[in-house]
Simulated assay, not measured.
Amino acid sequence: MDQEAVRAAFDRQLRERALPDGPGVRVERAGDVVRQVGGAHDWNGVLWSDLTGATADRAVAEQAAYFAARGLEAEWKLYAHDRPADLGRRLLAAGFVPGPAEEVMVAESASVSASMSGSTSGGAVLPDGVRLLPVTDAAGVDLLADVHARAFGDDATRLRERLRTRLAEAPDTLVAVVVMAGVTPVSASRMELPPGVEFAGLWGGGTVPEWRGRGLYRAQIAYRARIAAARGYRWLQADAMDTSRPVLRRLGFVSLGTTTPYMYTP
C-alpha cells in the first residue's frame, strides 16, 4: 500500500469533497473550510480545512460563531497532518475541547473479506447461540442504540434518530448489524457507504462488557468487509480506539495517522 497516496485519496474523497452523510444535512465550503450542517440530531462540524498560520485563528473563530448562532454542538475533526501544525492549540484557545485521539486505519476490503472467508459469519466463529442480525428497521435501530449506550456509557438518542432517518430515506448508504445472544443484543456496528468514493467507513463497533473478547467485533468486520467488497468499495476505513487497533492490525489494517475530535458547545 502506498500510504501517502491512500491518505491523499481519503482527504480528497471523504473530507475536501465530502457528501452529506444523510438526509436533511448539507456540506458547505466556507473559504478554506469544509463543514457539514444539519439539525440537532445530526453530526455537525468541520471535515476539512486548508489553513495557514495567518488564516487559522480567523477561520476557527468564524466556525465557532457560525455553529453558536445556530445553537449546534460541533466537532472540528482534526487530523495529525492538517496545517498549521499548531491548529489544535488554536482550537483549544477558541473554546474547542479535545477528545481522545483515534488512529485512522485502512485495509483493502477484498483482502480482508478473502482472509476471513469460510464461515457463515465471514470467517469469524461466533459462540454457540449467537447470531448476526442485520438492522433493517426502527426495531433494529433500537437494539443497536441499546448496545451503544451500554458499551460506551453515553446517550444514544442522537444516534437513534439519525439512523432511523437514514434507513428510511437513504438505506443504500448504510449497513448496520447487531449481534444477538439469544434474544439479547450484546454487540453492534455500522458501515457508511457514501456514493461515488472508494472508502467504506466502519463505525460504532461496540460490545457490552460481559461479552468482550469472544470474537464478536471480528465477526462484524468480516460481515461488513464482504458487503463492501461486493458493492465495489476498495477500502475499509476505521477511526480506531485502543481496544480495536490490535484486532484491525491483525486483519491487515495499516495506519494513515491520527484524528482528534475537538468539540465546541455553544
Rank of each mutant, 00 (worst) to 15 (best):
E103M: 04
E103I: 10
V104G: 05
V106R: 06
A110T: 14
A110S: 15
A110Y: 04
S111G: 14
S113L: 01
S113Q: 09
S113G: 03
A114S: 14
S115G: 04
M116Y: 02
S117R: 14
G118L: 00
G122E: 01
A124M: 04
A124I: 03
L126R: 06
P127D: 01
D128N: 11
V130D: 01
L133A: 12
L133M: 14
L133P: 00
P134A: 11
P134Y: 10
T136F: 11
A138R: 13
A138F: 08
A138G: 07
A139F: 06
D142K: 01
L143A: 14
L144N: 13
A145T: 15
A145W: 03
A145N: 05
D146M: 06
D146Y: 05
V147T: 11
V147E: 07
H148S: 15
A151G: 11
G153D: 02
G153K: 05
D154Y: 11
D155R: 11
D155N: 15
A156E: 06
T157I: 03
L159C: 07
R160M: 02
R160W: 08
E161R: 06
L163S: 00
T165D: 15
R166H: 15
A168T: 13
A170P: 01
A170C: 05
P171V: 00
D172N: 08
D172V: 06
D172H: 09
T173L: 10
T173A: 14
L174M: 15
V175S: 12
A176H: 01
V177A: 12
V177P: 00
V177Y: 04
V178E: 01
V178T: 09
V179L: 03
M180W: 11
M180Y: 14
A181M: 06
V183T: 11
V183M: 05
P185T: 03
V186T: 13
A188E: 00
S189N: 11
S189T: 13
E192S: 13
L193K: 07
P194I: 08
G196L: 05
V197E: 07
E198W: 02
A200D: 10
A200L: 08
L202E: 04
W203S: 07
G204N: 11
G204D: 13
G204L: 15
G206M: 02
G206A: 09
G206N: 05
V208F: 12
P209N: 00
P209R: 05
P209G: 02
P209D: 03
P209L: 00
E210G: 13
W211L: 12
R212C: 09
R212Q: 15
R212M: 12
L216A: 14
Y217M: 11
R218H: 07
R218F: 01
A219Q: 00
Q220W: 02
I221D: 02
I221R: 00
Y223M: 03
Y223C: 05
